[in-house]
Design a protein around this nucleic acid. Structure first.
Lengths: 206, 206
DNA sequence: CCAATCTATCGTACAGTGTACGAGATCGCA
DNA sequence: TGCGATCTCGTACACTGTACGATAGATTGG
């Protein structure tokens, strides 16, 4: 985070902008590490700045305020989530939603504080442009596939989309209850419960 | 919250305890009102005390710290939730889970900040004694009914309990996503989505 | 009825928070 | 070299939770 003296650059404006974004990323990554290890309350401006060996007020050159830092973390979270789901999505194969949903749940369990933050604040219209809707990636994929496979009669299409929505709702419920440690009353481990949902709510079946 | 001069009491000790609990309740109610109207961040010790016309430090006579105040609010929340579900539960009638789950969802939508708080913190073993598990009331009810109706072969019983668990998971997912304003991508309003879950995940349907 | 004790109240203080302001340093460019 | 723009961050202020201790009032023992 020390100032890097740059010697050659094309147009000063563009370079500055890139530098700006790069430092913003670095700040966000540091904040995410803190969120992961110590929880949301530990993500203070002073703590993040200290980890970067920088005065607290320096952060405000790159991020408007703490709320902005939170939004940046959430944005990165959805990127990670969607990437993980996309990589593990075996849509079109026999496995169906299994891979993607496993990746979704794994992300939530490995980043519980981030996942909570991602779904904590009410999503305003402004956010909708910035953030993807969590399951949105898989959801769009299945919607696209279903509507392209000839079920244009749109009854089945509509039902399939509803089924995908149900599954997302259930998957999110499973993730949040697992994070909150509230699943002890139910029989079976987390994997069993996910399999259960896949067997009974997932869009591929029936 | 001003000191009430008491003249006649049976055993001083017991009266003090009752008074203590009564004031604790009053503090919790005030905090809940603040939580409802202004959000969790507005529930400061000073704000609660001020609403009661009392010094901030006075609260510490009745509540160990802010964490304790949060736990008290959560306890009241589960009481309200379970009461609402019990009153609207028409278990055994044709309506099945419909009434209880509607009450559950209504509670969540009418007390979004409280509902979030109730499921925010990880549930420790200590909490398990104090708090009910959210859907626990309805859940126990259906478990009890199912295990008393002759399905002792415990395959069906086991499956029914799993179905109840699935439904709770989905209902919680629906509530939290609705609170977060994340359901816009899905078709239909909240009531439609609940009906959808009832039709496809609820324990009554075989 | 008085003195002793015990309890509730809360003023003050301290460490920690987000961040507004502005002084100084450093930069790119002429 | 000079100048204007930008970055850095020390300081300050209004908040937070709450530890400590003084005060006042109630309760109790004699």
């Amino acid at each position: 985070m020390t100032h890097v003296p740059q010697t050659t650059r094309p147009t000063a404006r563009r370079w500055h902008r890139a530098d700006h974004d790069q430092r913003r990323e670095l700040i966000t990554k540091t904040a995410l590490k803190l969120l992961q290890t110590k929880g949301l309350l530990a993500v203070t401006m002073r703590a993040v700045a200290s980890k970067l060996g920088v005065g607290a007020m320096t952060l405000y050159t790159y991020i408007e305020d703490q709320h902005g830092l939170h939004r940046e973390m959430v944005r990165r979270g959805f990127e990670m989530l969607n990437l993980g789901c996309a990589e593990n999505s075996t849509l079109g194969t026999d496995e169906g939603w299994r891979g993607g949903s496993r990746a979704y749940l794994r992300f939530a369990m490995e980043n519980p504080n981030l996942y909570k933050l991602m779904f904590d604040h009410f999503m305003s219209d402004d956010d909708k442009d910035l953030l993807h809707g969590g399951f949105q990636h898989l959801f769009d994929k299945v919607k696209g596939r279903l509507s392209c496979e000839g079920y244009e009669g749109d009854n089945l299409d509509r039902e399939s989309r509803a089924r995908a929505g149900r599954f997302w709702i259930a998957l999110h419920g499973l993730a949040t209850l697992a994070i909150a440690g509230r699943l002890a009353v139910l029989e079976g481990g987390l994997d069993d419960l996910l399999d259960d949902l896949l067997d009974h709510v997932a869009p591929d079946q029936a």
